[in-house]
Nucleic acid binder design. Structure first.
Lengths: 231, 231
DNA sequence: ACTTTGCGAGAGCACCGCTCTCTCTTGCTT
DNA sequence: AAGCAAGAGAGAGCGGTGCTCTCGCAAAGT
């Protein structure tokens, strides 16, 4: 029942590889990820690494999975500390947590939300679930707010309306198309803001990042139809 | 006065290199960019390419410059076809043009707005000017609209307010901080929406891209304080 | 005790960016 | 016109990459 020493050793080496990979990601970026370098640091000959990781792409996939998990954990934990009925604060806290995690882990953020690594396509069946956690947080938030379509919602084509209706059962909250669209805009805008900071698009412009994010989160909160944070 | 055959030849080869590089970028992505492969396709030995391009990083910089120029040209041209006084349409058209260019040139879009190529930092003095053209379009648009700060603008910290005030002389339109911030949100949101589509973040969610973008552009237009497009 | 399995070592393939040297041709200058 | 400098390609080579294959040893299972 208990694992053999060999299994234990294997698990340990695997963990070492992933840890070194994360470190390499942080220092060299995703294109600098080198199986040979990891093997070298582990005191292994280059071919031995393939006993653990079948290919560089697979290592990338593992890193993406781990990163999505860490990202979801961080944001969910922050959001969970808010009073459930303080919807404005839940949104503000979520946005801040997304930024905080991204700034603390820029290489991982780039892996998740940056340009796809060329020639490599993450197997969606292994990443979509982990990647949906933060968006789902948002949808739940809007559902808790009891938001309804508003006459201020711009019109949308019938095809888009149908599509968003089709998505309703696949996500929590059962949001009507207009509200679902608001959530989409909020999340894409948030990611856009964070990516601009992390990817350096704001150089020579904004440097007051936390203040700027708070300001824009307040704007987006208004677009969503959320009240301001309490007190 | 006229250029010598040798200069002509050099210019031609340089143009060939850039064209092949753009093609390679499209098929292999930025990490697949290979000087050797370009040389091979040109019928040159690998070392000869260095007569034209001093390094891979320099080739990347050239591609970024060309891409920013093509991007700016495309969006400016589209926006210029709008009636000057139809501010809602100018915004809608700008947003659509950004998406159209990005979808038509996904690798170039990734180069400009995706994760920075690891280990490589674009020399900002060579890219910021070209990269500012579309944002400047937006600032001009808001200035033409004569937008003023509104009581609906969320508060911002004094430091952020000062910073945005400091930026005023460096950009056209002389926008007050609250209005400038609206422009920042609009552009980051637009880029976020487009990147989500181009980078595949919408898989299993939105597929009605043009309709979705129009819908969200209308929302953002309202946030900006622009009227709806005429007729 | 025997056999299967796991795992590291080593050599090797094809590719990459980049450097250095050598050669030949072009084009400018005296 | 002669001579010299610069341009441009060829070739060899360095160190790096991902990945494959074979070999041998030791641990695990029977």
């Amino acid at each position: 029942m208990t694992e053999t020493p060999r299994q234990r050793q294997h698990r340990q080496t695997m963990a070492d590889i992933l840890q070194l990979a994360h470190r390499q990601l942080a220092t060299e970026g995703s294109a600098g990820l080198s199986l040979r370098a990891i093997a070298r640091e582990l005191g292994l000959v280059s071919s031995a690494i393939y006993r653990y990781v079948p290919s560089r792409d697979e290592l990338l996939t593992l890193l993406i999975e781990e990163s999505y998990t860490a990202y979801g954990d961080a944001v969910e934990a922050a959001e969970a500390r808010c009073r459930r009925d303080d919807l404005g604060r839940r949104w503000l806290t979520t946005g801040r947590a997304v930024r905080r995690w991204a700034v603390a882990n820029p290489a991982e953020w780039a892996l998740l939300y940056g340009s796809p690594v060329p020639g490599y396509q993450a197997p969606s069946e292994r990443t979509t679930a982990a990647g949906s956690r933060v968006p789902i947080l948002l949808l739940t938030l809007l559902a808790d707010a009891g938001l309804e379509p508003s006459p201020d919602d711009p019109p949308m084509t019938a095809a888009l309306h149908r599509e968003l209706n089709r998505l309703r059962p696949a996500f929590p909250g059962d949001l009507k198309p207009g509200v679902f669209a608001r959530a989409l805009l909020a999340y894409t805008s948030l990611c856009g803001l964070v990516s601009f900071e992390v990817f350096g698009q704001f150089t020579n412009t904004v440097t007051q990042f936390p203040a700027h994010l708070d300001h824009q989160l307040a704007r987006l909160g208004a677009v969503l139809g959320l009240p301001e944070p309490l007190r």
